[in-house]
Design a binder for these strands. Structure first.
Ligand SMILES: Nc1ncnc2c1ncn2[C@@H]1O[C@H](CSCC[C@H](N)C(=O)O)[C@@H](O)[C@H]1O
Length: 517
DNA sequence: GTAATTAAGATTTTACTT
DNA sequence: AAGTAAAATCTTAATTAC
């Protein structure tokens, strides 16, 4: 296992740290990391699903289902009945139990986003080998089970005030402090963490708490909070990677772009980039609509009589008939109309793209492609750490390129794009990103249409040709996950969203190929 | 002909009460 | 804290406008 450490020396040469000692070092004194000391990040994140650390498989299964919100007794009964081989069947059974009211209701915690900070776990964590991470894919990621068997860390707690430390630990696992307090009060200060966790789960409904505020590891101008992430084996570079999606139940860097611009955009970002030394694109975009578009104040909402003559006309008519200020009904009508049709030019600007970036295609196409693109300022902030590491520019594998959000972000950061292998199936989107490249870029652009056609062989030949990939970046389709899809919201295995697996496949392939060559 | 418009829910999160 | 109302969400197919 490897931990990304910040390179405090300012050498231009970036190096991947693969020293196992790092992990040992970080793991050995996690308590000290809670202090307010500035410097390299330290708290170790680990997806709790990968933390079986020697527990019997059955215990792990129990934890998994308890983590989904079923009472432990119920889970045990279920496993006793049909075993834990078939998780789906077991969930079905548990739901049946629940419906029958055999057990007290505990609410739905299936989307809990808790994580276990890997402070003291022993490790050689078998379950964090690359095999585990990639084969069990999203399912493993989804299972954030704050259940522990209480073996490893109890020792390390001894010097601390037991109660305080345990409360802190529970809080670090994501439990609210009052619940942690409750558990300690009821079980006593020398109860094992696992007991406390069980109690909290068993005792009451534990609602999902999305990170609040959704700022990920922090915002421009803020001091970096003290965190260290433990990356699963697959995530250790090279290459760097960056993945975006509308993830709610994975523990990534979860960010709302409203902290970067005047548009709300909640997204999960999974990446192995360092988080120290980030900087934003300047100037910082305005954070409210009226700051972004002061003209709206004056003649909102008939804001664009050229392109939206009809809308503007209807609105104008409605407004001219009413007094000043317009009646409540008229105001609502106007707001309704304006909400219905966002303005592509304005949308482009809010998302951080150059003016008219998508201007060459039909309006509905602009809406569509802008609708699922990166918010440039947000992504750029995360990618900014690459600048000093790669003064000569980078080779990028850009999967699901869309309108080129990643490329625009890198460009606006002043990171040179030496070569971009871009994979995008949509003709319209390709024309947009290609057009932008032609106008702004001097490096090599290689276009591929189908992500599934980017085979290991082709990857190898690209690496042979380009030398290396420094960054694998992309956001796989989330149309099958999104609530706004009335038709095919079928989950990760949906036709498009399942391409997530190709992202993983390609990342793995790039990594292993580069390691081999 | 192509592009714009319209209306078709469900699920989940946030805002607002009580 | 807990309940309810409101808002928000990476589409598609049929129809109308140009
Ligand atoms: N099989 C496939 N191969 C390649 N790209 C695909 C694909 N299926 C869908 N896509 C593309 O994947 C993209 C997902 S949305 C990603 C948008 C991008 N991050 C941006 O900043 O614009 C869409 O543009 C969609 O056209």
């Amino acid at each position: 296992m490897v931990v990304l450490v910040s390179d405090s020396n300012d050498s231009d040469e970036f190096e991947w740290d693969e020293d196992r000692d790092d992990e040992a070092r970080v793991s050995s004194s996690p308590a000290l990391r809670n202090s307010d000391v500035p410097g390299p990040s330290t708290l170790v994140w680990q997806d709790a699903g990968g933390r079986a650390n020697g527990a019997a498989p059955s215990a792990s299964s129990v934890g998994k289902f308890v983590g989904m919100g079923f009472p432990k007794e119920m889970v045990l009964k279920g496993i006793k009945e049909i075993g834990d081989r078939d998780p789906n069947a077991l969930v079905e059974l548990l739901l049946t139990y629940k419906a029958l009211g055999d057990f007290p209701p505990v609410g739905n915690c299936s989307t809990s986003s808790r994580c276990i900070p890997q402070s003291v776990e022993d490790n050689d964590d078998d379950d964090l080998t690359s095999e585990d991470w990639d084969e069990s894919d999203a399912a493993a990621e989804r299972d954030h089970i704050p259940i522990s068997d209480g073996s490893g860390y109890e020792d390390f707690l001894q010097e601390m005030s037991q109660m305080d430390k345990k409360i802190k630990y529970l809080v670090s696992m994501g439990f609210p402090e009052n619940e942690a307090n409750m558990a300690i009060t009821r079980c006593g200060s020398d109860a094992a963490i696992s007991v406390l966790v069980d109690l909290i789960y068993a005792s009451e409904y534990v609602p999902l708490r999305l990170p609040n505020p959704m700022v990920g590891f922090g915002l421009p101008g803020e001091r970096l909070q003290l965190v260290t992430r433990r990356l699963p084996a697959l995530a250790i570079g090279p290459p760097f990677f960056y993945f975006e999606n509308i993830l709610y139940d994975i523990e990534p860097e979860f960010v709302d772009s409203k902290f970067f611009c005047a548009a709300i955009r909640q997204r999960g970002y999974i990446h192995n980039l360092p988080i120290e030394g980030r900087f934003p694109i300047l100037p910082l975009p305005p954070k409210t609509i009226l700051e972004a578009f002061p003209q709206f104040k004056k003649w909102w909402p008939s804001c664009d009589s050229r392109e939206y003559a009809k809308l503007a006309e209807r609105i104008h008519r409605a407004l001219s008939k009413s007094g000043n200020p317009p009646s409540q009904g008229d105001q609502e009508y106007v707001m309704r109309e304006c909400r219905k049709w966002n303005l592509p030019n304005e949308m482009e600007l809010l998302l951080g793209y150059p003016a008219d970036h998508t201007g060459q295609v039909a309006k509905m196409e602009r809406y569509k492609s802008l609708g699922n693109s990166f918010q440039v300022d947000t992504v750029a902030y995360h990618l900014s750490v690459l600048k000093e590491k790669f003064p000569g520019g980078i080779n990028v594998s850009s999967l699901f390129t869309g309108i080129g959000g990643a490329e625009v972000a890198l460009h606006r950061l002043g990171i040179r794009l030496r070569a971009v292998v871009s994979v995008e199936i949509s003709e319209v989107s390709r024309s947009i990103s290609k057009g932008w490249c032609d106008q702004t870029q001097t490096g090599t652009l290689i276009e591929i249409y189908e992500v599934q056609s980017l085979t290991d062989d082709r990857i190898e030949s690209f690496i042979r040709r380009l030398g290396r990939f420094d960054l694998v970046i992309g956001g796989s389709p989330c149309n099958n996950l999104s609530g706004s899809n009335r038709h095919h919201r079928v989950g990760l295995d949906g036709a498009q969203s399942a391409l997530f697996y190709d992202y993983v496949r390609i990342l793995k392939s790039v990594k292993s190929t580069m390691a081999r060559m």
